[in-house]
Computed example of a mutant assay.
Amino acid sequence: MTVGGPERQVVAAPLPDILAPGLAVVFCGINPALSAAAAGHHFVARTNRFWRAVHLAGFTPEEIRPENDRTILQYGCGLTAVVGRATARADELSARDFADAAERFEGKIARAAPRFVAFLGKAAYAALVDRRDLAWGPQAATFGGARPWVLPNPSGRNRAFSLDQLVCAYRELQRALHRTGSHAES
């Protein structure tokens, strides 16, 4: 994959997962942004509200800087993306991208064995389970052995949700973790 204009093409390595066995929750983006793949860190765009939302929702005691993204493991949380291919916008992905990623992604979640898998936006989970009528929040069926939860996408491009609405939605997952006895230590 390349990043930059025609005069400055930089090959970006795939964005590494931040996973460990038995986490409380794995947050799953749709796919990496070009900027994240180029930097080698999750949610690096200044307009992305992920780090702020997870902090304000109680997953982390402070707001993690993207370059310190691996520290999220200390709080029982992990990070991955459903589709590994980085794009400028998630709508650049095709149904084929999700179909090609489905089995590998579900296996990755099964191996990591988190208590919850939190999909950041409906698009990826809807494509994986072949359903369009999804509600926000907890889902009925397990996914890779984990309990799926659909959260609003924190991308700065997603203006349908304010930061306060994101925090409220993410806090519901944090409360569910506490209720089930599997929570991030904060």
Rank of each mutant, 00 (worst) to 15 (best):
M1P: 01
M1D: 10
V3G: 00
G5Y: 09
A13N: 04
P14E: 13
L15M: 03
P16N: 10
P21R: 15
L23G: 09
V26H: 07
N31A: 08
A33D: 15
S35V: 03
A39V: 08
V44Y: 00
A45Q: 15
R49E: 07
G58Q: 03
F59Q: 12
T60I: 02
T60L: 01
P61I: 09
E62R: 14
E63W: 05
E67G: 07
T71Q: 13
Y75R: 10
Y75W: 15
G76R: 04
G76D: 02
A81L: 01
G84L: 07
G84H: 08
A86H: 12
T87Y: 02
A88D: 14
R89F: 15
E92Y: 09
E92G: 08
L93Q: 07
F98P: 09
A99Q: 11
D100Y: 00
A101F: 06
A101R: 04
A102D: 12
A102Q: 14
F105H: 14
R111P: 00
R111A: 15
P114C: 14
P114D: 12
F116A: 05
A118P: 04
F119W: 07
Y125D: 01
V129N: 03
L134Y: 07
L134P: 08
G137C: 11
P138Y: 06
P138V: 05
Q139G: 04
T142I: 10
G145W: 03
P148Q: 01
V150Q: 04
L151G: 03
R159F: 02
A160G: 15
F161N: 03
S162Y: 13
L163S: 10
D164R: 13
V167H: 05
V167P: 09
